[in-house]
Simulated assay, not measured.
Amino acid sequence: MIKNQWYAILPSKAVKKNKMLGVKRLNLDLALFRNTKNELGCVVDQCTHRGAELSKGKIKGDCIRCPFHGLQFDKNGKCMFIPANGKASTVDISRYNVKHYLVKESNGIIYLWYGDEENATGELPFFYDHVDDSYVYSEIEDHWNSHYSRSIENQLDVVHVPIVHYNTIGRGNKTLINGPKVEFENNVLTTSANNEVDEGQTPKPAAECIIKETYLSFMFPNMWMNHISHKVKVIIYFAPVDEENTVLYIRFYCKITNSRIINRIIAFFGKFANRIIERQDKRVVITQKPKASALKSGEKLLSGDGPIIKYRRVSDELKNSDKS
């Protein structure tokens, strides 16, 4: 994982009032909840007293209550009350505090800061310049038994499209890969397919290719967009579970008509079309070994793998910058 980044980990609707949610993200067992002000709290899902899972407990006021011995913790993990000590106790209970993680919400997404809290940046990663309130969206999720890096690379891979998706988005047998052109600016990698039917011609180098109207963008650390047209876009955030599992949250954005109701219907059915395509990818990606990708590996990459090579280089640079 790349440290000191905001990771999109869950849709906001997943954490409901008066109900705890236990999830695993970024190799961390987490308990999420909302207090009476609807503020999010995220703590390690383990009580400091006897190790019980806090997510199995209940919400009590602005705190979560451990299901084992009733210790109460606020949204910042501060221990507020220990029933066994009594209401009149003056004993310092700060040593029972649980580790908390900084979380924020935007665009119906919960983000977790993975790194040192004092280094947290203000802006949450999202394609703000591409979707706004004029769009409606419908969302589905799917669990992949693959590292999030492999899942991301698949969405940047133009070489596989006519092979894996030969009967959907890859129809036309355009197996010859020109370029593709790859741009990287402001933490965003952008590319587009320039595939052609192979009639014996020599593939064009990336320098002779363009970024088309339909293009792909990836924003580090885990946000991807397929810019299908001005009125239709698909956004995926790849929530890392652990070293071998990822949850894909797939959103179909639409503003094709002037009616939000009709657009919602289109988006609803559009997400299922996305699922068909995504499942074609999943069948192959979960077989890749090793589970995680790396800049230096035994893989023999093609010139058409330019977007993947760029993704790996930037990932490597971000990981190394955190170590320095």
Rank of each mutant, 00 (worst) to 15 (best):
D132S: 05
D133N: 13
D133E: 10
Y135N: 01
V136E: 01
V136S: 03
V136K: 02
Y137F: 13
Y137L: 04
Y137S: 06
S138E: 05
E139V: 08
E139F: 02
I140G: 00
E141R: 13
E141I: 10
D142E: 14
H143K: 10
H143W: 09
H143T: 15
W144Q: 03
S146M: 07
H147C: 05
H147D: 14
H147K: 04
Y148R: 04
Y148V: 09
Y148T: 01
Y148W: 13
S149P: 03
S149D: 07
R150V: 01
S151F: 09
I152M: 04
I152F: 08
E153P: 07
E153F: 08
E153L: 04
N154K: 05
Q155L: 02
L156W: 08
L156G: 13
D157S: 04
V158G: 02
V158F: 11
V159A: 10
V159D: 02
H160Q: 13
V161I: 14
V161Q: 08
P162Y: 00
P162Q: 07
I163F: 02
V164K: 07
V164R: 09
H165Q: 04
H165V: 15
Y166F: 12
Y166E: 09
N167I: 12
N167L: 08
N167C: 10
T168P: 11
T168H: 04
I169T: 08
G170V: 11
G170Q: 00
R171K: 15
I177W: 03
I177F: 02
N178I: 14
G179H: 10
G179F: 08
P180H: 06
P180M: 01
K181T: 04
K181R: 12
K181Q: 04
K181W: 13
V182R: 05
E183V: 15
E183N: 09
F184H: 11
F184E: 00
F184Q: 06
E185N: 07
E185W: 13
E185Y: 13
E185I: 15
E185Q: 01
E185K: 15
N186R: 01
N186P: 15
N186S: 10
N186E: 02
L189H: 12
T190L: 00
T190S: 01
T190E: 05
S192T: 07
A193E: 11
N194V: 09
N195G: 03
N195W: 12
E196P: 11
E196A: 04
V197K: 11
D198Q: 06
D198V: 11
D198A: 15
D198E: 08
E199T: 11
G200P: 06
Q201E: 06
P203T: 12
P203Y: 10
K204M: 13
P205E: 04
A206K: 14
A207I: 15
A207C: 10
A207S: 14
I210V: 14
I210T: 15
I211R: 07
I211A: 09
I211C: 06
I211S: 01
K212C: 01
K212G: 08
K212M: 03
K212I: 02
K212H: 15
E213W: 12
E213D: 14
T214L: 06
T214A: 08
T214G: 13
Y215F: 14
S217P: 14
S217K: 11
S217E: 09
F218K: 00
F218Q: 00
M219S: 12
M219P: 13
M219C: 12
M219Q: 10
M219D: 04
